[in-house]
Design a protein around this nucleic acid. Sequence first.
DNA 1: GATGAATGAGTCTTCATTCAT
DNA 2: AATGAATGAAGACTCATTCAT
Lengths: 214, 214, 214, 214
Amino acid sequence: MTEEVQRARRLPRAVRERQILDAAVQVFSRYGYHTASMDEISEVAGVSKPMIYTYLGSKEDLFAKCIRREATRLLEAIQDGVKPELPPDMQLWHGLRSFYRFVADFRESWTVLHRQALTVGGEFAAEITAMRTRAIELVAALVVNAGARKGLAEQAEFSGEGLSAALVGAAESLADWALDHPDVSDGVLASWLMNLVWLGFNDLVEGDVWKPTA
Amino acid sequence: MTEEVQRARRLPRAVRERQILDAAVQVFSRYGYHTASMDEISEVAGVSKPMIYTYLGSKEDLFAKCIRREATRLLEAIQDGVKPELPPDMQLWHGLRSFYRFVADFRESWTVLHRQALTVGGEFAAEITAMRTRAIELVAALVVNAGARKGLAEQAEFSGEGLSAALVGAAESLADWALDHPDVSDGVLASWLMNLVWLGFNDLVEGDVWKPTA
Amino acid sequence: MTEEVQRARRLPRAVRERQILDAAVQVFSRYGYHTASMDEISEVAGVSKPMIYTYLGSKEDLFAKCIRREATRLLEAIQDGVKPELPPDMQLWHGLRSFYRFVADFRESWTVLHRQALTVGGEFAAEITAMRTRAIELVAALVVNAGARKGLAEQAEFSGEGLSAALVGAAESLADWALDHPDVSDGVLASWLMNLVWLGFNDLVEGDVWKPTA
Amino acid sequence: MTEEVQRARRLPRAVRERQILDAAVQVFSRYGYHTASMDEISEVAGVSKPMIYTYLGSKEDLFAKCIRREATRLLEAIQDGVKPELPPDMQLWHGLRSFYRFVADFRESWTVLHRQALTVGGEFAAEITAMRTRAIELVAALVVNAGARKGLAEQAEFSGEGLSAALVGAAESLADWALDHPDVSDGVLASWLMNLVWLGFNDLVEGDVWKPTA
DNA sequence: GATGAATGAGTCTTCATTCAT
DNA sequence: AATGAATGAAGACTCATTCAT
């Protein structure tokens, strides 16, 4: 037998689980939860269907495990990028860079998280929402809290929760856009968003742009 | 036969089509494209399945027609709200108000457009993207063009297309948030977004808030 | 198209349901609940599988409906045979004759009821037990009550419930035996059982009980 | 390694086989042949699945071996109880007592033999029938032969084989009933059955037969 | 114009069984 | 001797879609 085949046989469980999850993320990201078939996942994984069920459970279980693994990866990637010793705007910028780098490096992970996780409904939506919330808290705490400290919370023109939702939406939407424009670097993407949310259009129009300082 | 039954029978085609589309939007918005069943749509519409196929084609056709009808409605609602004689920021604010009013008034339309249209993939994604593009062009032209006129287009810190995508994402995300907070008026939602994109966090933190002037 | 095919197409629901139940009883009786496949039932019924699910529900539902229909048939057959104006022993004899006639005429019904219903467990066992109980009450009331009236209930040598169970078991077991001996008439079968249990009961009723002597 | 683990490893084949058979009887009796899974049996036995196949063959083989072992046990238990020096009725009574004691002591054995063996069909049915036959011959020979000697075999009202079948059925059915009434002793159960069938046979042997009168 | 009746095709899931170590 | 790893085969169930009336 060739070494190739040797390598693929009788692997320890942990390795197989990773293989399967990798294949599942790939297939789910391409076809979406409903259209994806366990048959295709097993083919891509190079593993028979029963293994999937033995190791990872039902299709829904499998999807949940994909979502959780990729979400954890994403959050860790962002957290690793943030540098707490820097001023708030730079922290935000670094966080965003990490985010866009992750999206570029792991398109499929991002697609599964952003696009496909919504299509199942119910339990997953809740999980995804929780992650979005954690994400926004992680990244936007800097900004929103800054505002809150100044008593903005009382003004109708301001709402931490609402603005957070908007900010996350903006970042995600730009990430999608970036998927079709791979030539734009993560630093630039992060800068655009900074200019939008940090300075606002008004300042932009005045020629006042935000730039990273460190 | 009673008049009740009479009314349900032998209706002109246009009326039947509307009935069916209404039911389809309702069911698609609740369950999503894949989980929705033609059986349920026909039940909700009070029409047998063969009628649906005769009048509106396959499930995919039906979904496409839902998307198109609701997208048209949304765009018209926004366009009706914009007042070209006002200054750019007020135009933007009015456009956003109309948008949020529409989302509140026609939850199902919005849900189908925003959430469910993504789950099908391929052909629909393109169509939806086209509509988002039209939307962003319609609403954000004001801002972007203003910036462009000042030569911002040449700076790496600025990208009309990218920022537009971000802006639309922010507006959509806030719309979703608003679905769970029906007590927040469309005017307030629009103001929040104005403060985010028009002034930026920086000005906000300085206590400088944007307010509608007309 | 031939008339044969004509007859098989577009039948009203009630007719199809009967066809399917007939086929199901046949297949279940031959293979048992677990080994029987919906595919085979649909083939035997001359109907596609979806029809079965549409009309009669899941495999378990289908089986339950078989059991209930056949049980009802059996009980009715027995009830029709009993002649209340006759003395108790003759009533019992006629009831048994009807029972054995039914078993001979509808082997499959009997097989499903007696053999296969036990194999599913849980819900069905209860239902079958209820029917056995009704059966024994129906047929053996004559005998047992006769005994009870004479104060037998107080004796350890007697137990209405236990003896009823034994009697039913005897009748069923003889029915199974009869399936392999179709030449023995229902009248003879009934007589055998009468001689086994009636003479026994008769002595019992007279207060003549058997007791161990060593 | 601990002694505990030591004890579980490298056991002589005979011991392993017994372990497995014990587990199999337990699982088969609880779930029935089809619903029982080899996985569960191997778990209960504390042995890996390949061992089962190596030692005892396929699922069907395993089941057959269960049946045979338990049937042998049952027959031996009954035989041990019978005392050939006593008169026929007492022999019968002792045999029945042994039977009911076995059923009470080894519920699972009895359940597998009586309930589950029927659900497989074909080959097993034959085997079980053979055992029932041996059982009836063993226990009822006394009675039936007594009758046969008196020339009863020629009468339509009598049939050794048929009555035997009925008698076995009665005994089995009462055994099932006894499973739900553990407070009734084996002696009482045996007495009930004696009263049902012995007094009946007794009259039969005396030539006193019941005949329909109308 | 309108529909009850009917199905082909495909999906998830399970289980007995066997390698390779 | 013993087992974790692996799968072929099969079964229940569903759904978009179309006749025949």
